[in-house]
Amino acid sequence: MNGTSFYKCLLRCLSLILVMMNSSCEETDVCDQMVSPRLNIVFKDVRGDALVLDTLYVYRDGNRSPEVMMHKSDSLHIALNADKNETRFEFRRKEDAPLGEILITAKNRERQYISIACGFKQFYKDVTYDQYQYKLGEIERVIGLQSEIVDESSPHLEIRWQD
């Protein structure tokens, strides 16, 4: 094999490397799938009709800063704690006026593997909803609609507000 054919051979090798490289090195570091389902809450009036709240502040587990500041909406999606069975949410129509709390307790939590990037997602089963009212007359009733939180497609909890 002379020098010319040697370099032709070398070029073929390098071309092959480039082709093979093109099919490699696709990193999978981005999580693009649904993670743990959130609690889906709908707001209704005493008659059971959809109610659009002007403002609502939601505080988690006694935190001083609100987790959610909602404006003009009739529903809310909020994540539950993944590391413990209980999650406590406090609701306020005004920042300095606590109305009441809802304690959500999941007796069973199940984890399902999704992918390396996403890790695991968590499902909540045997869920109970307990209401603690501070100020009478604002939250009329809390109705648990589902005892399992495995997706967000339909509401899990209904809060009925006084008009």
Binding site: S36, A82, G119
Partner: peptide, 13 residues
């Protein structure tokens, strides 16, 4: 340790 992802929060299992 493995991650359990919720919205905006990662818990370590």
């Amino acid at each position: 340790a493995y991650p359990v992802r919720s919205f905006g929060v990662v818990y370590t299992g």
